[in-house]
Design a binder for these strands. Structure first.
Length: 831
RNA sequence: GCGGCGGUGCUGGAACUGGUCUACAGGAUGGUCUCAAACACCAUUGUCCGAAAGGACGUGUGGGUUCGAAUCCCACCCGCCGCACCA
């Protein structure tokens, strides 16, 4: 008698050792004679900090289920792992404790490795790397230089977020509601020289190519919003007194005739210049200074009154020569368009509010829906017939959309404007005044200027330093020996760039490196890349919907343009999993509601943890962790495992290697047939639920149903039937609870479940000779009777008419209509 | 305000293209086993009326389409997420 207690602490390590020793999940780059289609399954690169959390468990439970399914449905699957190992938490830890980020990162990675292995996920560990390793970031630097050579990486002065308390520059992601994420101090803005990537050159392609990829619609929508493309025109307003042209961007050139004033952002370089020498100079200076002291959050506050001051100058409206007074107002943003706007209060809510507050005229030039020209329904932002567009009377009555095209044509011909497209997307600022990141491979030479480090001198290694405390410049500034170098160009003295790269740069190409991870001659061999890319299924949290996913797409397009890649989109399909909460709230240390995967795995085993998290609900939705729910899944796994062990003993030695394991003993009938039908129903159900819709929760429920049926019928069926049914259950379960399933399957069949092809349902066993016919009167269920699957409509009506409870309801009524849905129901409409 | 997602038993959720509402699991109640408990196993479990047969009601609210609506249409309420002066 085999041991009959389900003990994950014995089962799980045993199978993990087999997979590690045999390198089961490794896949070579050269397929050789292997004709199977490739499949690249990838979860988003984890940031190793402390220990993996429950969100990681969910990501890998989903990804591993998909990877296993692809393998067993005839694919060569690449499923690699690595670490996004540069970043702030390790550096902050170093500032606090003095422990080198390399050391703390190494120990975090160790703990991640240990736990990932304890989860039994099917990873090709031979391709593992961390983005902080010189063998990786050497190629990050190489990509930076490739972009630099192509003019896609450039340096300019820019306003950056600055924390006065920590004396450091912050990444945008580290600013929360205008405050430093770490110390809570209010963030300031400073002008510094920064490196940028020219992602805006790719705005249209990033937008258009969303059409060809299989991503959740809401993620595409978020990217579209982020790019924020709008079509319109650039129109030039001239300040005659000073002889300066001010282009503005507008989406509504058709409303030009309604412009009654003109507004500059407080940060506009000419705000003060225009006011100089006027009686308004003092007021404008005050206003600009006040605006500078306010955070963007304060300025963006809802329902904020529209403030602003006149500068005492006018500009000329190019369509009618009118002189428009110029204001400075903080509702105009320097970051968008040209930092200046024409204000059309009749047709723009914000301009309207400003006009009201400052007693400025409102002139309607587009009629409302019913041809309304009354001032009562202003502001009106919609389209309509043109009115009052003097002196261009030919526009009168034209639809505003048509007028728009005419006006833009006219402006163009007159040299006063042209059609234009504006984006919300800005270039990607990649400099970070931080230590623990990838060094930017640039040196500054007094004679030669900005010089790229030659690629054969890469990597520019990150030096060890003693003091990580931020002082407003990169900590690397203090590493004199490292900073001082020679110019690769002229050999004269030069200084290294001391900023490091945004860690999003590291993670924008890691999926490429996995394909050719051990290549020390190049970042990758393009033919190897062609073998695996693009990623067939990408899995991760929706929090990366914009930044990471946009940057990675940009990298691929840029690298493709430079001839390094043969494809445009890195992630063909994307799945975004929901958050795991506890008691309805996000898990956090401060709330004390953190569920540790390690503790769950220790107590119940990885199989229970993984299967539970997939069973709670649809994986794309948030799921609330329930300790009782985990118990339930643990009981289920135990029940299946025990049943399998018992049935294996009962059925005797496993069939020989050539016998088809899941086949029914020929001529099964009665309970045997019933159980086999259930097994094949489960195959069909689980296959459909995994393929196409990632409905792992219902897939697991189906396996539970099959298991319950095995349990119910176990003493009434042939042991061989029971074995076939339980082997099927284990085979289907393998994607979700691999150790228990491999164990149960081996006991039953003597085989390794992962080497078996995905089971296929036999059509004959999916058919049933009879079904339960639902009998309705006026759409209400009145009875149910057994009917033959091939019964004719007439026979079904007859059966329904004769059903006892139907008879009672028909009594004294006349049937006026009969509805028959084959293999389902009959509905009599009676009067 | 705009965009997206969602609202079904006591709880998590199922019901895929209009056709048996509540699969599967949790919880609860009762039982078997046990000296006892845990485990395990079995049974019951939407609400109301009824001894039962059976009936009425029931998927956020109100209306509509249909033989038939959780599902489609209209209006509204609530919750979550994202964006939010983007000209």
């Amino acid at each position: 008698m085999a041991e009959q207690r389900y003990d994950p602490s014995r089962i799980e390590p045993r199978w993990q050792q087999v997979w590690a020793a045999e390198r089961t999940w490794e896949v070579p780059n050269d397929p050789g004679g292997d004709r199977r289609a490739k499949s690249y399954v990838l979860e988003m690169l984890p940031y190793p900090s402390g220990e993996p959390h429950i969100g990681h468990l969910k990501t890998y439970a989903v990804g591993d289920a998909i990877a296993h399914f692809h393998r067993r449905t005839g694919h060569r699957v690449l499923h690699p792992m690595g670490y996004d190992a540069f970043g702030l938490p390790a550096e902050n830890h170093a500032i606090k404790t003095g422990e080198h980020p390399r050391a703390s990162t190494a120990s975090s990675i160790k703990s991640f490795q240990r736990q990932f292995r304890s989860w039994g996920i099917s990873i090709d560990w031979s391709r593992e790397f961390g983005t902080h390793e010189p063998r990786y970031y050497r190629w990050t630097q190489w990509i930076f230089l490739a972009l630099f050579e192509a003019g896609l990486a450039y340096r300019k002065e820019a306003a950056v977020k600055w924390c006065p308390n920590d004396a450091t520059v912050l990444a945008n992601e580290q600013v929360i509601d205008g405050h430093c994420e770490r110390c809570g101090a209010e963030v300031e803005v400073r002008q510094l020289e920064q490196w940028f990537f020219r992602i805006t050159d790719y705005a249209d392609r990033l937008l258009d190519d969303l059409g060809g990829i299989d991503w959740p619609e809401h993620v595409k929508t978020m990217q579209r919003n982020w790019i924020g493309r709008s079509e319109g025109a650039e129109v030039v307003f001239r300040c005659q007194e000073l002889g300066i042209d001010y282009p503005v961007f507008t989406t509504r050139p058709d409303t030009l005739f309604g412009a009654t004033f003109f507004v500059l952002a407080p940060e506009h370089p000419d705000a003060l210049r225009l006011a100089r020498g006027t009686e308004h100079e003092e007021a404008v200076r005050d206003y600009v200074n006040r605006a500078a002291g306010e955070s963007s959050e304060e300025r963006g506050a809802l329902e904020r009154p529209k403030t602003g001051v006149a500068v005492g100058r006018t500009v000329t409206n190019p369509v009618n020569g009118e002189q428009l007074p110029v204001f400075v107002a903080d509702y105009v943003l320097m970051e968008y368009g040209t930092g200046a706007i024409m204000a059309v209060p009749a047709h723009d809510e914000r301009d309207f509010a400003f006009a009201q507050a400052h007693g400025l005229p409102v002139r309607r030039v587009v009629a409302g829906p019913e041809g309304s020209t009354s001032p009562d329904d202003l502001p009106y932002a919609g389209d309509g017939a043109m009115v009052d567009s003097h002196p261009h009377s030919e526009l009168q009555g034209l639809h505003s959309r048509d007028a728009l095209a005419r006006i833009v044509g006219w402006l163009d011909a007159e040299g006063k404007g042209h059609a234009s497209v504006s984006y919300r997307l800005r270039d990607w600022l990649v400099s970070r005044q931080r230590y623990w990141g990838c060094p930017i491979p640039i040196v500054y030479c007094a004679r030669c200027g900005t010089v790229p480090v030659p690629t054969d001198q890469l990597p520019v290694e990150l030096p060890d330093i003693a003091d990580y405390a931020p002082r407003g410049r990169s900590p690397l500034d203090a590493a004199e020996d490292w900073v001082a170098t020679t110019c690769p160009n002229c050999g004269g003295p030069a200084r290294r760039e001391t900023d490091t790269m945004d860690t999003f740069v590291d993670s924008s190409w890691y999926f490429l490196r996995y394909c050719d991870a051990s290549n020390d001659q190049a970042a990758w061999d393009p033919t190897v890349l062609a073998e695996w890319m693009p990623v067939d299924q990408y899995i991760g949290g929706v929090e990366h919907a914009i930044l990471h996913l946009m940057y990675a797409r940009f990298f691929c397009k840029a690298l493709a343009d430079l001839g390094h890649l043969g494809f445009q989109e890195p992630f063909q399909a994307l799945f975004t999993q929901g958050m795991v909460t506890k008691d309805g709230a996000k898990m956090s240390k401060s709330k004390g509601n953190v569920v540790s995967p390690a503790a769950i795995v220790k107590r119940y085993g990885a199989d229970t943890a993984r299967a539970y998290i997939l069973f709670v609900g649809p994986p794309d939705q948030d799921a609330d962790w329930s300790d009782e729910g985990v118990e339930g899944v643990y009981r289920f796994l135990g029940r299946l495992w025990r049943l399998s062990a018992e049935a294996a003993d009962l059925a005797g030695s496993p069939p020989d290697a050539s016998a088809p394991v899941l086949d029914a003993p020929a001529g099964a009938e009665g309970d045997d047939l019933e159980l086999l039908r259930k097994a094949h129903w489960a195959i069909e159900k689980v296959t459909g639920d995994i393929r196409g819709r990632f409905a792992f929760n219902t897939a697991i429920a189906a396996i539970m149903e099959l298991t319950n049926e095995c349990s119910r019928l176990r003493e009434r069926v042939d042991p061989q039937t029971l074995r076939a049914a339980l082997a099927t259950a284990n085979s289907l379960l393998f994607s979700f609870a691999p150790h228990a399933a491999a164990d149960g399957y081996e006991r039953l069949t003597g085989r390794r479940v992962w080497e078996e092809p995905w089971p296929e349902a036999e059509p004959a066993l999916l058919e049933r000779p009879t079904f339960e016919l639902v009998c309705q009167i006026n759409g209400k269920v009145r009875d149910r009777v057994q009917a033959a699957a091939d019964a004719s409509e007439e026979e079904l009506k007859e059966l329904c008419r004769n059903a006892p409870n139907v008879q009672a309801h028909l009594d004294g009524h006349e049937i006026v209509k009969e509805v028959v849905v084959p293999r389902r129901l009959v509905n009599f409409v009676v009067r």
